[in-house]
Amino acid sequence: MMENQGNAIIEIQNVSKVYRSRGALFGVRAKDVVALRQVSLKIYKGEIFGLVGESGSGKTTVGRLIVGLEEITSGEIFLDQENVTGLKGKALKAFRRKVQMIFQDPYQSLNPQRSVLDTVSEPLSIHRVGRSADRKEMAHKVLKSVGLSPPEAFFYRYPHRLSGGQRQRVAIARAMVLNPEFVIADEPTSMLDASISAQIFNILLKMRSTFHVTQMFITHSLAAARYLCDRIAVIYRGQVMEVGSGETIIRNPRHPYTQALIDALPKFKGSGEIKQYGTLLIEEREVNGEPMGCPFYPRCTVAEIRCEREIPGLRMLEEGHYVACFNV
């Protein structure tokens, strides 16, 4: 993926994450779990980048590795061309001013014992930004920008007095208050109703247009990714299968897995518009020995012999469209 290095804000290179099993239970040593295998991605300034995958695909792990909630097993992460892998102490704190995260479950991500004002102004006091009055002012501003108005009415409320949508807005406000360069939104709407999700989506779009925040949007929904994102990466079992612009991925998916994913969406509306690919096997194919090839091999209808043994790397098909498959 060699492109102009200049405007990539986040770049992850060959990142792997292995969860090592801790000791042995009843003499049976559990296998190490490979959550991510050699993942490389680039996120450009000002874009919303979608990371789409099913549960267990490792999409959340990517986000957690970037913000440093988990340690990287191998590979490197760059922020503005600066290596930010395994930062500690002051450097880590400085990094955290620039990179923030919005968590999946707004019912869990706010401290029940702290008021909205406490929660939103906390990052400011951690990084010693302004005085108490300034912080209140800044919290006011950011709460207003996420649509909680009048902000004063929310300052002294506690999370249990907020609806799910309001909580997620507070969480977004907390992430935005430091004016970060890059925000990761990890399935921010999976716990919310459709009409509320739409509000959250629109706030994220607004954050981009007014504050020029680059975002990574992690989701299991291709439709949501299409709505929000400029580019989409599809991830399966810890490996990136396909990267391209939103419309390319939806209209012209080339990887068999992406095709299967689109096939599986409920079809009542638009069965005429979106073609069927039929790239998914009904029953999984047996793999001999350790799985070491393409992760989609066991279910792929177009797999060849080498797919079982070799891992296909991302190849460029056309400008900005990459696919990890031998058969495309």
Binding site: V67, G68, N111, R114
Partner: peptide, 26 residues
Amino acid sequence: QRPFIEAAKVAGASHVRIIFRHIMPN
């Protein structure tokens, strides 16, 4: 393990802060 502790970490909170501001009240 709760996400609000992780959120505080991502915000840059120190261990002392997490213990006294986030865990203790709970």
